[in-house]
Each structure stands twice: as C-alpha cells, then as structure tokens.
Design a protein around this nucleic acid. Structure first.
Lengths: 205, 205
DNA sequence: GTCTATAAGAGGATAGAC
DNA sequence: GTCTATCCTCTTATAGAC
C-alpha cells in the first residue's frame, strides 16, 4: 500500500500486520503460520521464512517495531512542557495517556501475550533498552516542578504505572456498565485527583 | 495423598494439580493433554476424559475451584473488623492482600491466561457470580467507617484494584533490583499512604 | 522472492478391552 | 476407572523448481 516501500519491505509489513491481528484475536499458539500467510495477502507459508526465521521472530519484531513508546513519550513530554505544577502534569498526562492507549490496544494485548508465553522477556528488554532511560530523565524534570520536590519518585512512578495498567485490565474484566457510567476523560481526572490528593485529601473540583 | 478423597476424586485432584503447574509454566496451548496425563502420576491420556470432557474444561475447573477469593475476602473482613478508621483499613488490607497474593501466584497466572486465551470470560464469570456481590456488601461497611463518608466508592474500589493488579504486573516486568530495595510490606505501606493522601498530601510516618 | 509439495511429528480426542 | 492403540487434523519448517 505504501509506495515508498520496496516489494520485499511491503511483504514484510503485510506479514507483521496480519500476524498482529491474528495474535491479538486468537493468541500466539492459536495462530498458525498458515493462517498468517493466508491473511498476509494469500501468500505461501514458505514465503514467510524469507522474512523471518521463525514464528517467534515475527512476534519479537512486532514488540520491537510496533510499540507506542515514542508516542507515549511524546505525550508525556507535551504534558510536561505545558505544566506549571505537578497537578497540571498529572492531570494532563493521565488524560492524554488514557486517550492514546486504547488506540494501541493491539500492543497491550501483545504485551500480555509476551508476559504469558515468553515470561515478559521481550517487553522487559524493550523497557530496559528504550523506555527506562528516557523515563528516568523525564522523571528528573518532573521533580523540578514547583510542588514536586517531596516526590518519592520510585513509589510515585510505580503507582502511576500501576494505575494505568490496572485501568486497562479492569476494563477488560468488568462487565459492561459496571464502570461504564464515566467517560475515559472523567476516569482520568478522578485517577489524577486520587494520585495527587488520595481519597482523604482535598478535591480540586 | 488425601485419605478423605475417593479414588476418583483423588485422580481428579491429581489432574488439576498437574494441569495447573503445566499451564502456569508453559501456557495453555503450550501444555498438551499428553503432558498433563504424564504429570498427573503417569496416567493415560484417555483417563483424563473420564474426569473432564475437554482440555478447556480442565482449565475452567481450575478457575472455578482453585481461586483464592474466599481467602481474600477473609483477609478483607479481618482488616475491616480490626479497623477503626479508613486509614487503618487501607493499611491493613493492602499489607495483607499483598502478603497473601504472592502465595497464589499460580492463580494470577491462570487469570492472565484466561484474559488472553478466553477473553477473560471465566474470570469475569467468577467475579460476577461470586466476588462482586460480596465486594459491594463489604464496600458498604467500609463506607460506614468514621472518615470514609466522602468516599466515591466506584472510583475508590477501581483505584484499589488497579493498584494491586498493577503491583503484580510491574513486579513481573521490572528487572530485578529496580523496585527491589523495598520489601513487600514497605510497598504496601507506601501504596496505602498514596491511596489515602496522594503524593501531595500529608504523610502518616 | 515466491511458489508447490512434503517432511516429521505433535495436537486433541476416541474405541474398545479389561 | 484405567489402560493400549489409534484416528485424523494441524503444526512448524524445509526442499527445490521458477
């Protein structure tokens, strides 16, 4: 579809697109190389092996090349640039992250597959080599915000990550309607207030 | 092993034990009926079908019969019985839940498998028919605590659940040592303070 | 780089004797 | 309730022509 791609690269992209969809829909072991080849434009199975040495290599390429980390960091950087206080940053960041994440639902599913099928090694590798260094740098700048001096960064960042991850998982688990009365933006605002002031503290609104 | 079990029930228990271990270690599709039969005391494959009609039925039985919900509710009830304030309850509950959960790591893994392989339908069924009714009842009594009147229960309970789920998942993802300086009890205390007062509020200690 | 054809074996599930 | 033996499908991966 993309005229800037060579024929080989286009085939590779087709394979990755097909595999992503099938892995997400039917799981890793529930997806066969046959199914991927068929979904990637009716190719032959053997053709896949011209681009990837194994099924696992296809999965690893998806984690490494189709992750939303650049996008997420862009969102966080944008939220930080606009923020004058920690409260500003937390509200904007949570709102934007929860807006952006659902658009990358596929990756979240792939991450869960990696956790189960490969012990999370591919995600952990990505975090250590790409995400963590940038995250620590960003965190230092967050701590420079006027009201953030007392921030225990380790506790804070794990709490923030837990809230986002837990939000996604509880969404998958809860029956429709249980948490459905509030929009995602409203949830983001509530979670931000909870993170900033707790359930006993003052409310912004 | 258990003399109170009939021969048939003992076989059933053996099969469930073996399947649980293999599912957790190798994943659902990574575990064959042959492997389960072998691990369940060197039985024959056909023998499994005297106790379960299919492989999926074995998995469903594990979710339905080997879950720690009774235990968790016991912990929460105990925490509530001892608590005079919401802060008491949150601290005790988080500490005890994070102590108890790792002892049921197998179930957490099975829950993740259910999420991926079966769309979470088995966990969702368990929650709706067993956990949610009891949880709502307990929540009403939590709100009767002196300082909990203003509690937005929906937001609060989802935040609490997200923190616990996120704690477990981040533990799996983080390289050893990144979060490893603090004990689980210390983490529980930090998370409880965060939940109660937020990152900008007062600290108990 | 793509194809057809096939290897070599594992998968879930069943038949029927004991 | 347990076994041995087996069915048939599907699996990943490869060989070799074009």
């Amino acid at each position: 579809m993309d005229p800037t791609l060579s024929k080989g690269d286009q085939a590779r992209a087709d394979i990755l697109d097909a595999a992503r969809h099938l892995f997400v829909t039917y799981g890793y072991h529930g997806t066969s190389m046959r199914a991927i080849a068929q979904a990637a434009g009716g190719r032959s199975v053997a053709g896949l092996y011209n681009h990837f040495p194994s099924k696992e290599a296809i999965f690893m390429a998806l984690i490494a090349e189709r992750n939303p980390y650049d996008l997420l960091f862009g969102v966080l950087e944008g939220a930080l640039a606009d923020a004058h206080t920690l409260a500003d940053f937390v509200h904007t960041a949570l709102r934007e992250v929860l807006r952006v994440l659902p658009q990358h639902y596929d990756f979240l599913q792939l991450a869960q597959i990696d956790l189960r099928e490969f012990g999370g090694k591919n995600i952990a590798h990505l975090l250590q080599h790409s995400a963590f260094p940038r995250l620590l740098d960003l965190l230092r700048r967050v701590q420079a915000l006027p009201d953030a001096a007392r921030l225990d960064s380790l506790v804070w960042v794990r709490t923030l990550a837990s809230l986002v991850i837990g939000f996604v998982i509880t969404e998958q688990l809860a029956p429709t309607g249980l948490f459905g009365d509030l929009s995602t933006d409203e949830w983001a605002a509530h979670l931000a207030d909870m993170l900033l002031y707790g359930c006993l503290g003052p409310r912004a609104g």
